[in-house]
């Protein structure tokens, strides 16, 4: 599917699933997130980029409360994230997360990694959970490894399992925190292909990544962060061809011309 045709087909629902208003966070004295305002619609694909230490990982980790924000409000799927543990758990089961280092459970097989949360959190019967897991493992093209342990798989395979594990919870939003940064170069593509497939199926996605090719081909919106603030957000077309701020231009020149 060509880029233009693909984007023409993608019509957003207009329904909001995440809203951050005036979100601030500090690590001790260090002001890591500054007045973040962000609204994400259902089905929207967002790529977050920026130099390291700019707060982009921290921002998406706030969306499922792996990090706590200290000021402002975050509402996900109609639930505000506060200290209320029940609400946090409710949000987390609707928000899948894929980590840079996969974080698969090494003592469980691939299949058990995928069925654990559906069985214990969604209270699904084991057989049903396994059916669903096999479906998603097939989709990330790794079903034949279902009974192996994560340690027996390559990095790319592990990351695909991690994506399948999240999908098994049928999340409404998927967060990707630099999913390809820890991979050997030849494995990046197999993971990106899975993510592209997911985007084409209409999954709401927020992706922290340095893969600008991915951003160009699937993102609806690219967000550029620097020093804890959202500096610029735009469609990939105008973001890459016509960046408005100097900081964005500097960043793009650094990552694109090396």
């Amino acid at each position: 599917m060509s880029q233009a045709a693909h984007q023409a087909q993608h019509v957003l629902s207009g329904e909001e699933i995440i809203r951050c208003t005036g979100v601030n966070k500090w690590y001790g004295e260090f002001h890591v997130l500054k007045n973040i305002d962000l609204s994400v619609q259902k089905g929207e694909r967002i790529v977050v980029c920026g130099p390291s230490g700019s707060g982009k990982s921290t921002m998406i980790r706030c969306l499922n409360r792996l990090e706590e924000h200290q000021k402002g409000t975050i509402v996900v799927d109609g639930i505000e994230l506060t200290n209320n543990l029940k609400n946090i758990e409710l949000v987390r089961r609707e928000v899948g997360m894929v980590f840079q280092h996969f974080n698969l459970f090494p003592h469980l097989t691939v299949l058990e990694n995928c069925t654990l949360a559906p069985i214990w959190v969604r209270k699904k019967p084991k057989a049903e959970a396994e059916d669903i897991a096999m479906r998603y493992l097939k989709r990330v093209r790794i079903a034949e490894q279902a009974h192996k342990y994560p340690g027996q798989l390559s990095g790319g395979q592990q990351q695909r399992v991690a994506i399948a594990r999240s999908l098994c919870m049928s999340p409404k939003v998927m967060l990707f925190d630099e999913p390809t940064s820890a991979l050997d170069p030849e494995m990046v593509k197999e993971v990106l292909d899975v993510m592209i497939g997911l985007a084409e199926d209409g999954m709401t996605m927020l992706c922290v990544t340095h893969e600008m090719g991915f951003a160009k081909s699937v993102a609806d919106r690219v967000i550029f962060m620097d020093r804890g603030e959202i500096v610029e957000q735009d469609t990939p077309d105008s973001f890459f061809t016509n960046p408005k701020s100097d900081r964005t231009r500097l960043f793009l020149s650094q990552i694109l011309n090396h």
Binding site: R92, N103, V121, S166, M169
Partner: peptide, 24 residues
Amino acid sequence: GQYEAADGLGLSYWQKMLKIILPQ
């Protein structure tokens, strides 16, 4: 990362401990 992965899937504290952390 093991704690974060368990949290991210929505497991409760005791589920996380009994199923993920303690066995390891």
